[in-house]
Every structure is written in C-alpha cells, then in structure tokens.
C-alpha cells in the first residue's frame, strides 16, 4: 500500500469521526470543534487530490473563518441543548434508517463499476497560478464577478439584519408619548443651563 493511500485513509477516518462528533455531541461548542477537524481533514484530502490552492482556501475560510463564526455565535447565544432523540413529532429512528438506506444508495453503485481513470496530470495542476489563470479567463470571469457581488450583498444583508431593531409603529407611538411627558415635566426640554 502506498503512503498516500495510508494518509488518505487516515484523513478520511478523521473527517468521518469528526463529522459524527458534530452530529452527536451534546454541547454545540464540541460540535464546532468537530466541524473544524472535519474541515482540516478535507483540506488534507484536497492536497492529496492535487488541489493545493483549494486546501489553503479551505483552511483559511472554513477552519479559520466559518468555525470561529460558529463559536462566537454559540458564545453569544449560550443556550444548552438537551437532545431528546425520542421526540414526539419526529420519528428519529425511522429517519436514521432512511439515511443509512440513502447511504447505501449513494455508495452501492460505486462498488459495482470500479473504473480507474489514469490521466497524466498536466504540469502545475491545481496551483494558484494555473487556477488563477483559468479563473480570470473569459470562461469563468462572469461567475467570479457574480460571486463577488453576492458576497457584498451578503455582507450588507447580515449587517442590516443584525443591526438596530427597526422602529415598529407601536414603539414609535410609545416613544412619542414618552417625549411629550418629558416636555410637560421640563418645559425647556431638559435644558438646565440657565
């Protein structure tokens, strides 16, 4: 067995077990940690698949950015979860069996036709230079720009959603009442300099 194969199995086991931790852990913080190790394992697999730039992006964006975002939100919400796997309205066991069947459906046909495509890799496959040249070519530039706009919209939307609570009509009325009362008590509007 080649060394790369052994590393592949190791990384796969890390990813799968971390993903299982994400699904089964009781505390959300442990889920976030498991998520980070899933991402790191997948980054290693990307290296094995000659996608070097993608591995770096995976570590930077996912393991560095998304996981930390999850951790911050968990700290902000601080809401313990008791898992009750025998909930009244969701037959969890049935769903789990269905998921296993789905897994068999996904993986089964792969074993039926084992085909080994061996194409020689062109020089510089998956490097930042080759990927960048392909990304900024006329083929993919529109998608690239569209994703940039999408990211901008996402940023604006998240700030707008998380920001100040918008004044509802009832709130506005209450605030106006409060201001009127204050003006009645202090006719100068609170100006006590004189």
């Amino acid at each position: 067995m080649k060394l790369t194969t052994i590393i592949f199995y190791l990384l796969s086991i890390i990813s799968v077990f971390s993903a299982l931790i994400v699904v089964t852990a009781r505390s959300p913080m442990r889920s976030a940690l498991g998520l980070m190790f899933t991402f790191l394992g997948l980054a290693g697999i990307y290296v094995l698949l000659h996608a070097h730039l993608l591995a770096v992006v995976q570590i930077l964006v996912y393991a560095g950015g998304v996981t930390v975002l999850f951790a911050f939100v968990i700290l902000m919400i601080r809401h313990g979860e008791q898992i009750s796997y025998s909930g009244p309205f969701m037959p969890v066991r049935v769903l789990s069996v269905l998921t296993v069947l789905y897994l068999v459906y996904l993986v089964g046909p792969i074993y039926l036709e084992v085909q080994r495509v061996k194409n020689a890799l062109p020089a510089g496959f998956g490097t930042a230079r080759a990927l960048g040249e392909s990304l900024f070519s006329s083929k993919h530039i529109i998608a690239f720009e569209a994703v940039g706009i999408l990211l901008l919209v996402t940023m604006v939307a998240s700030i707008a959603l998380i920001g100040r609570h918008r004044k509802t009509k009832e709130n506005q009325k209450e605030e106006e009442k409060l201001e009127n009362r204050v003006e009645k008590v202090i006719p100068d509007g609170g100006n006590t300099d004189a």
Binding site: V23, P28, V73
Partner: peptide, 19 residues
C-alpha cells in the same frame, strides 16, 4: 457519500438551529 449521509442525518435529527 458517507459525509453527506452524516450531514443529512444530523440535519434531520438535531434540534439546535446552529447544529
């Protein structure tokens, strides 16, 4: 396929929105 199935199972069974 294994990772996707784990994700589907968690999506169906977890009750915490963040999870």
């Amino acid at each position: 396929g294994i990772l996707f199935s784990i994700g589907v199972a968690g999506f169906l069974t977890r009750r915490n929105l963040i999870a």
